[in-house]
């Protein structure tokens, strides 16, 4: 997703906004979504700084326009209008980009609800803005309410088996020492590094997502 390309108005405005952004800073402001990367790298910290800079820019543009419009009304200087229009277009574009950025992040967060469950890993949570956390909680509530209402007896967990499973049980390998794990039927299994287990798919799906287990395929 590309976010902001301000180079359009630089040179058109008589006084450019105080902090002129360099090319490197543009790059920093773009949230990156590497393809096929690990989930941690997908959601980068909320670009507060970047967004604030965009807002400052927009304020500067707006003030400039305000002054020019007043001048134009007073003296009816027709040559001011193209500049005003240009700045207005830049303003609109910035707005669109910021909205797209926020929207995309929300989509990603919603997807994470399906992948990680209602509790986000700490490192991901750290990268969320306060409002996003609030939104996540609301989304979780909404989803939970819906899932409860689907079936009369106790609801239905929609987040399980996102892809249709081929078998009820799968073979997993333990990637790290995780300690004891209690299965649905009350049995206790010791998840120790490099041990292999044959488990119910539904039980170990979240452990696979957390990276504790690895599904070994034959």
């Amino acid at each position: 997703m590309s976010l902001i390309r301000h180079s359009l108005y630089v040179g058109v405005v008589e006084k450019p906004p105080p902090p002129p952004l360099t090319e490197e800073q543009y790059g920093e402001m773009e949230p990156k979504y590497p393809e096929g990367g690990h989930y941690l790298s997908v959601l980068r910290p909320h670009g507060d700084d970047c967004v604030r800079q965009v807002f400052e820019e927009m304020r500067a543009l707006f003030e400039q326009n305000q002054q020019d419009v007043e001048k134009a009304l007073d003296g009816a200087q027709a040559e001011m209008f193209p500049g005003i229009r240009m700045r207005h277009a830049a303003l609109e574009r910035n707005k669109r980009c910021v909205l797209a950025y926020v929207y995309n992040r929300l989509q990603k967060i919603a997807q994470m609800r399906w992948e990680f469950g209602s509790v986000l890993p700490a490192d991901i949570k750290y990268n969320l803005a306060e409002q996003e956390v609030q939104w996540f909680i609301k989304y979780t509530k909404c989803l939970a309410t819906y899932m409860r209402s689907v079936r009369a007896e106790g609801g239905l967990d929609l987040t399980q088996d996102l892809k249709p499973p081929k078998s009820l049980y799968i073979e997993v390998r333990c990637l790290m020492d995780h300690g004891e794990f209690e299965t649905q039927d009350g049995g206790v299994i010791l998840l120790k590094k490099n041990s292999q287990h044959f488990l119910l798919r539904s039980e170990c799906e979240h452990l696979i997502r957390q990276g504790v287990l690895e599904h070994s395929v034959h």
Binding site: L168, Y169, E171, I189, K192, N194, S195, Q196, H197, F198, L199
Partner: peptide
């Protein structure tokens, strides 16, 4: 043995 267990859905744990 793994194959046989998987056929019959017998749960197992393998430790070297």
């Amino acid at each position: 043995l793994q194959y046989l267990f998987q056929c019959d859905h017998v749960l197992y744990t393998i430790v070297p």
